[in-house]
C-alpha cells in the first residue's frame, strides 16, 4: 500500500525528501461504540507526495484526517508523523500515551483545512494568519506579517488583509484558511472536502490555488475530495477506502480508468 511503487509517475517529487515515510498508519483501529470505522488500517504517505483518499460516505476518510490532527484518538495501533509517534511517547523502551506537549510538538508539522473554513471570526484576516506563527512557533510579529502577506498574495487576497472573515465570500474564506494553514509551514497539509461547502462558481478559484501549491511547493498533501478531476491533476496516489480499509491504491490514471476492484468501479461510476 506504500506509495513508493509509483515514483515513476510523479512529476512533483522532490528527490531530496522523497522516499521517507512522512505519515505512517500502523494497524490503526477506530471505533465509535460498537461501530468499527477504521479496521486495522495500514498505509503510509511518503514525503512530498500528494495522496487523495476516495471512498463512499461514512467509509472513514474524515476520521483518518481527524486522527492525524489529534482531534480524536485511535483505540488501537500507532500513527507516526515524520518518524515520531503522534499519540504515543517512547519512555524507557515502552510506548505510553503521549502528553499534551509531545502531541503539540509533532502536530506542528501538520496543517489542516476544514470543509467549513473555521476561520476565527474575532480576528481580521491578517491576524488569522499571524496569531499561530507568533504564539505557537515564536516568530516575530514582523516575520509573521511578512509571511502572511506573501501567502495572501499566493491565494490572491492581498486587498482583503484588513477585513473580518464575515466580510468575505465562502471561496475567499477558504483561501484564507489555506493560507492560515500554510503560515505554519507544515510538512503535511490535510484537506477535507475543502470545496464541498462552496457555491459551485467559487470552487474553481480554490482548486486553482491548491493546484498551484501542489505544483510549486514540496509540501505533502493528504486530501479527501469528490472533485475527481482535481484528484487526477494533483495526486501521485489515490487510495480507495471502503469499510475502514484501503481496498485499492495506485496512480490516478490507473484507478480512474482501470480500477481492479468491483467496489471501486461502482463508486467511481456513481461519482464520475
Amino acid at each position: 500500500m506504500s506509495s513508493s511503487e509509483h515514483n515513476e509517475n510523479s512529476e512533483h517529487t522532490n528527490p531530496a525528501v522523497d522516499g521517507s515515510e512522512l505519515i505512517k498508519f500502523d494497524n490503526v483501529t477506530k471505533r465509535f461504540g460498537s461501530k468499527v470505522v477504521l479496521d486495522n488500517l495500514c498505509f503510509d504517505v511518503s514525503s512530498g507526495k500528494h495522496v487523495t483518499l476516495i471512498g463512499p460516505s461514512g467509509s472513514g476518510k474524515t476520521t483518518i484526517l481527524r486522527l492525524l490532527m489529534t482531534l480524536m484518538k485511535p483505540e488501537e495501533g500507532t500513527i507516526k508523523v515524520g518518524g515520531h509517534y503522534l499519540t504515543h511517547e517512547e519512555k524507557g523502551g515502552k510506548l505510553v500515551p503521549a502528553g499534551e506537549k509531545h502531541i503539540r510538538e509533532v502536530r506542528k508539522n501538520i496543517g489542516m483545512v476544514f470543509q467549513q473554513f473555521n476561520l476565527f471570526p474575532n480576528m481580521k484576516v491578517l491576524r488569522n494568519l499571524t496569531e499561530a506563527p507568533v504564539h505557537v512557533l515564536g516568530l516575530s510579529k514582523e516575520e509573521a506579517e511578512q509571511r502572511a502577506r506573501e501567502l495572501l498574495e499566493l491565494v490572491g487576497l492581498t486587498e482583503h488583509i484588513d477585513k473580518y472573515p464575515s466580510q468575505l465570500s465562502g471561496g475567499q474564506q477558504q483561501r484564507v484558511a489555506i493560507a492560515r494553514a500554510l503560515a505554519m509551514r507544515p510538512q503535511v497539509l490535510l484537506l477535507d472536502e475543502v470545496t464541498s461547502a462552496l457555491d459551485p462558481e467559487l470552487v474553481a478559484g480554490v482548486l486553482d490555488v491548491l493546484r498551484d501549491i501542489a505544483h510549486t511547493t514540496d509540501i505533502t498533501m493528504l486530501c479527501v475530495t469528490h472533485e475527481m478531476n482535481f484528484a487526477r491533476d494533483i495526486s501521485d496516489d489515490v487510495l480507495m477506502f471502503d469499510a475502514g480499509r484501503v481496498i485499492e491504491s495506485g496512480a490516478p490514471e490507473k484507478i480512474f480508468s482501470d480500477p481492479e476492484h468491483e467496489r471501486t468501479r461502482e463508486f467511481l461510476g456513481a461519482v464520475l
Partner: peptide, 27 residues
C-alpha cells in the same frame, strides 16, 4: 462557541490556555 473553532485552534497547535484566551473567550 462552535466546537469547530476549538478544533481549528488545535489544528494550529494552540495550547488549551491560548485556545481559551484567543478564540473561545473573545467569541
Amino acid at each position: 462557541v462552535a466546537p469547530a473553532q476549538r478544533e481549528a485552534g488545535v489544528a494550529l497547535s494552540f495550547t488549551r490556555g491560548q485556545q481559551l484566551r484567543k478564540i473561545l473567550i473573545p467569541q
